[in-house]
Structures are given as C-alpha cells and as structure tokens.
Simulated assay, not measured.
Amino acid sequence: MHHVEHVMGTVVSIDLADELPPAVLETMIGDACQWLHEVDRRFSTYRDDSEVSRFRRRELTLEECSPDMRHVLEACADLWRETDGYFDAYAAGPLDPSGYVKGWSVEIASARLAEAGSVRHCVNAGGDIRVRGLAASGKPWRVGIRHPWEADKLSWVLSVTDCAVATSGTYERGDHVVNPRSGKPARGLRSVTVVGPDLAIADAYATAALAMGEPGIGWLAKLVPDGYESAAVTEDGRAFSTAGLPAAV
C-alpha cells in the first residue's frame, strides 16, 4: 500500500509491503500520519502557537515543556557537543531544532508502524528515509540519491534494509545550512548522505558535515565504527564514499 501525505513543509510517502488486510494497513498509515501532524503542530517554527514558538518567546519554561520537547532539546545539545558545535539548533539565531525533528519524527513513525505489526515498510520525508524489512519485491529497498546538479539523474543507488538514509544538500533549498563558526552559509560540499541505524542521528550528522565543508568528509569517515556510512559530493564535483556504503550492484 502506498500513501502520500503533505506535512512538515514536505511530502511524506509511506509504503507498506506487509501482507496484511487493507483495512489494517490503512489504520497503520493513519496513525503514522496523525503522529507526523502532531509533531508539525508542536515543533513548527512557522506556527505562532507551536510549542517551539512559545518556548522561543519564553512563554514556557523548560519544566513546563512536554517530554518530547525536552528530549529534542537534550538531543540537540548532545549533538552540538558531539559535532564540535557544527550541529547547532541556534546557528541561524533563534532556536530551530528542525534539523533534528524531521528525522526523529520519521524514526518514531517507523517505530510506531513496527509496533502495530508492519515489519516491511519505507517512510520517506523529503529524502529522509527509514526502511524496515524487505520491499514488495522480496529484495532490499532501493533508494536513489539525487544528483546535486541534474535533478533527473542519481549519484548513487543504495540497497538497504532495517536502516535510515538521510541526505542534506544545497541544491534544493539553497544556503539553508549555516556554518556556526563563521555565521555564513556552508561552503565546500554540495551534498552529504549518511546511512545508519537511527534517522534522527543520521540526519543531524549529514547537516553537521555539510556545515563543516570539505573537512566534513574526514569527520564522517570516523563514524563508521558506530555504524554510519556516508557519501558526499563537493562543490567542484568530486565524489567520496566510505567503503561500507550499501550501494546497489
């Protein structure tokens, strides 16, 4: 079953390959979408009534925030330390945890699908992808990584199961990633893809590496022992990937 939902300022596609009754699959999808809309309402920086906006205006103290909000803030703080400050929810000024929230929300949506009985699915939120089990073909899911200059071409095709794929780049949203050291738009890398066990972490790592510029390639290589493989394309067109990147044959 295939479903498309417009939420969190992007298009989210949900594909379920489980051999279950359609009504059961529809209920699973409905629950996942309900969760994603709930996250959008609470964490959108574009809504004046969201929890994030109220916290930014100091209408809520940390103690008054929801457990999810406190988790997001703690995770962003941990990632700031882990990335030497390159993943910074305050890089552009006011608090904006979007670089963590989207991946985290899709990771949770996938977990909820699994808890409901779906062991074969793919959730794709604008290039942030979480897959479990095998595709309907009985083979691993195939994920195409867009060419950073030619939208109709691919840089890599990945063959994945039970993992997350996150891509951060400058080719769609322009200079949306800021180097927190300089306060200026990130330079040096055009596209970064990270593959690993947790989408929230993979997404944050991809953003941090993009902010670092070319030194981010070496930094990403150090994450391999933790289960995170990566690929990157520089602004001058060079491509790099770690040896364990699950590229399709």
Rank of each mutant, 00 (worst) to 15 (best):
V4I: 12
E5V: 14
H6Q: 10
T10V: 10
I14G: 02
D15S: 03
D15P: 00
D15N: 08
E19V: 11
L20W: 01
L20I: 14
P21Q: 12
A23M: 09
A23I: 14
L25V: 06
G30A: 05
G30Q: 09
Q34M: 10
W35P: 01
E38N: 07
V39K: 00
R42V: 04
F43T: 13
S44P: 08
S44K: 04
Y46N: 07
S53M: 08
S53R: 08
S53D: 04
R54H: 07
R54L: 11
R56I: 13
R56Y: 00
R57H: 07
E63P: 06
C65F: 01
S66N: 04
M69L: 15
V72L: 01
L73G: 05
A75C: 11
A75H: 10
C76A: 14
W80V: 01
T83K: 05
T83I: 09
D88W: 06
A91I: 09
P94F: 03
P97M: 14
S98W: 07
K102S: 11
G103F: 11
W104G: 01
W104S: 01
S105G: 10
I108S: 02
A109P: 05
S110D: 09
A111L: 10
R112A: 08
A114I: 03
A114Y: 07
E115A: 15
A116T: 03
G117C: 02
G117L: 04
S118L: 12
V119S: 15
N124L: 09
G127C: 12
G133W: 14
A135F: 00
G138M: 07
K139T: 12
I145R: 00
I145L: 14
R146Q: 15
P148I: 07
P148D: 05
D152S: 10
S155L: 06
L158I: 09
L158V: 09
S159E: 15
C163M: 15
V165P: 01
T167Y: 00
T170A: 13
Y171K: 03
E172W: 13
G174Y: 13
V177L: 13
R181M: 11
G183N: 03
R187T: 10
V194P: 04
V194N: 06
V195N: 00
V195I: 12
G196Y: 02
G196Q: 08
A206R: 03
T207Y: 07
A209W: 03
A209Q: 03
L210Y: 13
L210D: 13
M212Q: 15
I217K: 02
W219D: 12
L223Q: 15
D226S: 13
G227D: 06
G227L: 09
Y228F: 14
A232E: 06
F240Y: 14
L245W: 04
A247I: 11
A248N: 00
A248G: 03
A248Q: 11
V249S: 11
V249A: 14
